[in-house]
Write a protein that binds this DNA or RNA. Sequence first.
DNA 1: GGCTCAGGTCGATGGCGTCCACGGAAAGTA
DNA 2: TACTTTCCGTGGACGCCATCGACCTGAGCC
Lengths: 152, 152
Amino acid sequence: MDAIDLSLVELLRSNARLSYAELARQVGLSAPAVHERVGKLEAGGVLRGYRADVAPEAVGLGVTALIGIVEDSGADTDDVLAAFRAMPEIESCYFMAGVESFLLKARVGTIAELEQLIVRLNRTPGVASTRTGIALSTKWENRPQPLPTPQV
Amino acid sequence: MDAIDLSLVELLRSNARLSYAELARQVGLSAPAVHERVGKLEAGGVLRGYRADVAPEAVGLGVTALIGIVEDSGADTDDVLAAFRAMPEIESCYFMAGVESFLLKARVGTIAELEQLIVRLNRTPGVASTRTGIALSTKWENRPQPLPTPQV
DNA sequence: GGCTCAGGTCGATGGCGTCCACGGAAAGTA
DNA sequence: TACTTTCCGTGGACGCCATCGACCTGAGCC
């Protein structure tokens, strides 16, 4: 993981469809060299995949909510997690420090669907309570930040 | 935005580096047709970009925090937003319903850096108070959900 | 019917991805 | 020092891909 690897990661972070030839030009190596480096970054788990960034409203997912979850005292966290994982509306799931064990980011099409999701969450065994905040607008999301000083 | 467009979006969502030829095979069109459709989806703002999914710990961003912001009564929301935008650690910024006007997702390398970020946030004009939750672990993030029934 | 337009296929061509053989620098060993 | 090994790069070759232009086809409309 040297400076060139970092540049490659940063370039792919802002445009994952860059060709190897273009990457090669930008970092000053040949295309096969870049190809091998990117392959190693993928194999090493640094590059986990490549995703199109889709406007959620354009695909019928205009409602974003952030939901805090308080667990029951006797809850099995793994079971709760598995239940969350089975709900496709839950885009992100963080295990948090604090009273609320989880914070979920969910995306649905309508407020009615959000209501149904919250009901399902409250019915989930191990869930004591939920606290939902609605995002009126998303100012930005998953903005790639300039990478800090090189690691080992 | 028909069923084929939806498939293209879904395919690119799970792997943004698929070639046009491969996309064409998957949806049963020719490569030029797919090329044109994807171009229109990009131009129409449905596909906003393509991002590599990078393991944050691998680039020195091992600490994730979610921060709620309460605004001052007389705050200028645009100024506050601009101040947030200038802080690269803030990866996502949602404008929320509720007492906390904003919810920020921030990513830093160390707890010390998080502390500095929180201090800076509290010093920002227009910010009355902050409430920070630390993510002990990220179970998943930005999981692409199966797209719902086609739009117009 | 006949026009027009949107949106597709086909064919051509230059560039790209990817494999392979080779080379040179750095580190270890005698 | 000289030799060996390893790592990491380059350059060449070849087949596939991106992309452009020409043409085709069906729907909607005078």
